[in-house]
Nucleic acid binder design. Structure first.
Lengths: 177, 177
DNA sequence: TGATTTACCAAACAAGTGTTTGTTTGATAA
DNA sequence: TTATCAAACAAACACTTGTTTGGTAAATCA
């Protein structure tokens, strides 16, 4: 069982139940080993969390950057970013699904580290929103928080079978246009 | 220490850290008693959670109903509802703040019960959105989920000092108009 | 007055947590 | 064959969790 496989299992369980509620024994059981054996690959649970989260941020960043690069107007760039963002969040094979997990219970050092990663990622959206031709009275910070909030909330109600993640993301952007 | 005071303390701690991360000892300590003593007032932690959540739903329902009754056009009614909704969610004295807590880790029976309460509350927004004159192509279900998602996500970034919860709610509605 | 109820404490319980330790296994290379 | 290494197991560690039990002062009621 490789380190990468362990991280993939962890990402799925973390995304489903949060960090605190997912025990090392849960992960190990799913991966076919005992809890203690994981400490050969990761020096602590916090270490595992950080590794998974970092991989998630890297994944979603790459997906969004590629999508943005392929579009050529401010609105289509934002739309492409949102589609890539939501597809990553709702995929259950992607590590990025952990990014909607609750960070409050993590110890302060780790939490700050993860928040810094997330902020660095979300900075992309500041730029994308800045480039939009919005009404002069618009609070662009709030507008961006509204868009990301609606996107990040979708994992709580999304169920496969209806509109695709891409269609949802496009509709959310369109409604704010 | 009354049952009501205990519920108020619980609501604050549940809203800050979630149900799982808030222990009976945390609550008891804040209330000035020992963990075991709480079992005089509540037969189990799940019982306490259900009581707090129910009170929260009742509170926010009353606040929204009163706000809606005082407005007289579809858009102002929706706006009033969102203002009341967000004020309840962001108040740290209201029990309603627990409504954004994560329900996934609760046992199935309790989770279903809380979800049923929340659904009954949110049904108000189905009616409010139905009454709006939206473009014919608009998916009203998704439109409502977008609005509620943006509202329910605010507790993750809101900090007192900037725009008021009421102003935020009005801006979120305005951006979707 | 005496009996009962209210509201709590003190201490324990079993189960589950992350983590550490010593040991074993199978493969690989000298 | 010998030596080394990666990767795991088995069992314990100290600690936290929700919960239970038995007791006890103060208030209330008969």
């Amino acid at each position: 069982m490789s380190r990468e496989t362990l991280m993939a299992v962890s990402a799925r369980l973390f995304a489903r139940g949060g960090f605190d509620a997912t025990s090392m024994r849960d992960i190990a059981g799913e991966a076919g080993m005992l809890a203690g054996s994981m400490y050969y690959h990761f020096s602590s649970k916090n270490d595992l969390i950080a590794a998974v989260y970092e991989e998630g941020v890297a994944e979603i960043s790459a997906a969004v950057d590629a999508a943005v690069a392929a579009a050529d107007t401010p609105w289509t760039r934002l739309e492409a970013a949102c589609v890539a963002h939501l597809q990553s969040l709702l995929s259950d094979t992607a590590h990025a699904a952990v990014m909607t997990a609750d960070l409050r219970r993590l110890d302060a050092r780790l939490r700050r580290r993860l928040i810094a990663m997330r902020d660095a990622y979300e900075r992309r959206f500041i730029d994308l929103v800045t480039a939009l031709p919005l009404g002069t009275g618009t609070d662009r910070t709030l507008w961006r928080l509204q868009l990301l909030g609606a996107l990040n909330w979708t994992p709580t109600w999304y169920r496969p079978g209806g509109k695709s993640p891409a269609a949802i993301a496009r509709a959310l952007v369109a409604a704010l246009r």
